[in-house]
Amino acid sequence: MNLTLVTKLLFLALLTTVAISGQTVSAIEQNSIDSLNSKEKKLTLNIGFYKPFTTNSSFIGEGTKGQGGFDIGMQVFVYKNFFIGAFAGYFFLDVTNTNLVGDYRRSRAFNAAIELGYEHSLSKKIDIGASIAPLGYTEYRNYISDGRVRQQRDNASSIAYRTYVNYQFSRYFAFFINYSFRNDTTKIETAPEIQNNFNEIQYHNVGFGLRILVY
């Protein structure tokens, strides 16, 4: 069973947990839910910071180390607790093994995606949510030397699965922590015997951030 499948199953399990816990909670804390629903949150604006952990499933994953990243995004609640959203940001990788990836020092990657998700309130202040971002784009700018402007680019399409826990500390602001798994399918072409090692780059991202709620 490969890591992608495990992660997808974990994600589905989380989604199921969210749904089941939603039903349970809705039965127990009906009053709280009614109160939360009365908020009628229409959209959220998010800024998040995260640490990407590359997996060893690819040469780029094995030969680099994630240094950090950030993204900004927006979620629009279109039907009850279902939302669509979009986010974009940068993350950074340091090359640790040039024999696996090529002789460059670091990468700055731009990632943007559209997501679909569901959010559920556990209490007045705590929400949990899950989303899938099936349409994503990542561009890696690989810096060959620090002193001079030398770059090479790799492009990828991405799909991401994200879960988060949200703590609302005021009417308009919330703090969140999240975990996401992202799979980048690259357009890198190379020798057939190592092509599989460049087709995909996978990340486990752990992060936190601030959420602005708009009613």
Binding site: V101, D154, K187, I188, I194, F198
Partner: peptide
């Protein structure tokens, strides 16, 4: 100085 730089092919790795 800058024009002396070697360009690189995007989305490619050579073995």
């Amino acid at each position: 100085y800058l024009s002396c730089e070697v360009p690189y092919r995007d989305n490619a790795r050579l073995l």
